[in-house]
Amino acid sequence: MGTRFDDTESRVRSSFARQTMMQTFGAEIAALAPGRCEIVAPVLPLARQQHGVGHAGLAFSLGDSAAGYAALTLMPAEQEVMTAEIKINLLAPAAGDRLIARGEVVKAGRRLTVVRADVFAETAGKEKLIAILQGTMVPVAVAG
């Protein structure tokens, strides 16, 4: 018999698998824990900007998803999550082989959950912080 978090992890991974944009980017959930989520994705040619580095939209999408899924790990099974608002500070170009987004819950509430995410560009195992996000997630009823 699985633990409660095993059920939550299964629900989060199932939700993530339905995100076709994440599939397009080749993104995967690399780590998951209560209030935390790490998503990784290669910097594919389809997600680069004119200078050859990862597009800010890629960094934003990965950070938003990592923060959102961190929030979902703390929500009841009958709820899903949507972003109400989120901002990004771009600190450096997304120059690397892949991006790593680490999302975490800052404060979970019944109606609003404040989240943050740090996005790193990685090359040869070395990480560089390229973006930080902070936002608000809201619970929504699971469609059914």
Rank of each mutant, 00 (worst) to 15 (best):
3 T>D: 04
5 F>R: 01
7 D>Y: 08
8 T>V: 12
10 S>H: 15
11 R>T: 08
12 V>T: 08
13 R>S: 08
13 R>Y: 03
16 F>A: 05
16 F>I: 08
18 R>N: 11
19 Q>H: 13
20 T>V: 06
21 M>N: 04
23 Q>T: 02
27 A>S: 10
31 A>K: 14
31 A>M: 07
32 L>I: 00
33 A>P: 03
34 P>V: 09
36 R>F: 13
36 R>P: 03
43 V>W: 05
44 L>P: 03
45 P>Y: 03
47 A>P: 09
48 R>D: 02
48 R>P: 09
50 Q>F: 15
50 Q>K: 15
52 G>A: 05
52 G>T: 05
54 G>P: 00
55 H>N: 01
55 H>C: 03
56 A>K: 04
61 S>P: 09
61 S>Y: 12
62 L>T: 09
63 G>I: 03
64 D>E: 15
67 A>P: 08
67 A>E: 10
69 Y>R: 06
70 A>K: 12
71 A>M: 00
72 L>N: 07
73 T>M: 11
75 M>H: 10
75 M>T: 14
76 P>Q: 06
77 A>H: 12
77 A>I: 12
82 M>G: 06
84 A>I: 07
86 I>M: 08
90 L>K: 00
91 L>G: 02
92 A>T: 06
93 P>N: 06
94 A>C: 07
95 A>I: 00
96 G>E: 12
98 R>A: 11
99 L>N: 11
101 A>L: 09
102 R>T: 11
103 G>N: 06
103 G>L: 08
105 V>H: 03
106 V>D: 12
106 V>W: 07
107 K>V: 13
108 A>G: 15
110 R>H: 03
111 R>F: 10
111 R>W: 02
112 L>A: 10
114 V>T: 14
114 V>G: 10
115 V>I: 15
115 V>H: 12
117 A>P: 10
119 V>F: 01
121 A>Y: 03
121 A>F: 09
122 E>D: 15
123 T>G: 10
123 T>K: 13
124 A>Y: 13
124 A>H: 13
126 K>R: 14
128 K>R: 12
131 A>R: 02
131 A>S: 08
131 A>F: 00
132 I>W: 00
134 Q>C: 01
135 G>V: 02
135 G>R: 00
142 V>M: 14
144 G>A: 14
